[in-house]
Nucleic acid binder design. Sequence first.
DNA 1: CTGACCTTGTGAACGCTTACACAGAATTCA
DNA 2: TGAATTCTGTGTAAGCGTTCACAAGGTCAG
Lengths: 213, 213
Amino acid sequence: MQNTKPRVSKATISRIPLYYRAVVQLQQEGVARIRSERLSEIIHIPSATIRRDFSSFGELGKSGYGYSIATLVEEFGQLLDVDSSEAIILVGVGGLGRALLMNNFRRNPDLNIVMAFDADPDKVNTRIGGIPVYPFATLAAHMNPNIHTAILAVPSSAQTGVIGTLEAFGINAIMTFAPQPVACAPQTTIRYIDLTSELQTLLYTAHQKMKVR
Amino acid sequence: MQNTKPRVSKATISRIPLYYRAVVQLQQEGVARIRSERLSEIIHIPSATIRRDFSSFGELGKSGYGYSIATLVEEFGQLLDVDSSEAIILVGVGGLGRALLMNNFRRNPDLNIVMAFDADPDKVNTRIGGIPVYPFATLAAHMNPNIHTAILAVPSSAQTGVIGTLEAFGINAIMTFAPQPVACAPQTTIRYIDLTSELQTLLYTAHQKMKVR
DNA sequence: CTGACCTTGTGAACGCTTACACAGAATTCA
DNA sequence: TGAATTCTGTGTAAGCGTTCACAAGGTCAG
């Protein structure tokens, strides 16, 4: 089974969270059904793309009717596994780490940062936003086998070492804010959030737009 | 003024910051030249992609030699306009806004948050990380025509209104952390950083990877 | 200076994603 | 019930981006 073709394309996967958020919002507003054309206006994704995406999960809609909001919420909820709560650890309690702890994905009850770690003795053995902060050296003592997700807000220089340690403790999904690329084990998935690059790309794009005018 | 033929693809543009960061780093290490194959190992982008990207800015390299680091630093620096400092304002001084102020893209001297705004009276008329924080209502008094970039860390509900106001004062490049899509003027470029979606996509991908094994 | 050796730049093929357009299925309404 | 209307799902094509593979041209040792 070398070439297991993914059932759903990467581009579609990256849109599932947007779809989920939108249909939950609509459900809260009491909307019962929606057309792809109308949804397109709300989330700014072409209706043809929406229909093609939805159809890759089965025939969710009905001709001449549209999609039932309840069906969509159910379907995308299952895809994102929102019913089983995800326990997440955070490493690095600087300014950004602190902000993430205070916020803690409050809008999404299934996403929970359950504890945080930092190497700085001045920052540990306290609580931030109700979440305990432990010394990074005590990771082994606090880890448990149900945790396999981490968010990293550590300096670039520390990142490689931290990721190696986390992998050793069973973490296989990592979201990090340090752009330093790291070679990781094949079962590990890393998502890099590079704010400086995003900003520079934005500025380049905006600048080009000015020139064309 | 019809602009020149070789248009740079969006995918290439999004990699310019990575290239720039890498070559500056190499320059600081005293490296004078580099092959695409070696650069590929450092930034984890295929060498063929690197060569094609570079060639879209002209013939930067030499056969049998590679690329001169100095040439690359110069070229990408110009593309990103690192010589002219970019004045940025920040709106929303919650946990995330505060973290951004403390950090303020310190590694990139050309990127400067010069002031911040918030609607909450308790948060204004102070300094965070050396940057002054003003009431959002006084935006008009503090804006100047050289500023056309903003970072938004405000609640989703406030976003549409804030963006409208910013556009009226000449802002045309916006990076925002609220996923709520906003209809904006054609000359405005908005970049959405959606941390919840990123995390959910990561979890979905990691979960799929487990299933395949 | 010469020849062996490198490495770029790029034509061409490929694969992924989006966009178009419409047959056909389901709904709605009289 | 039947006809007009609505809207999905998808065949097909077009667009974009990546990867392969190699000719052309520069490098460098001797």
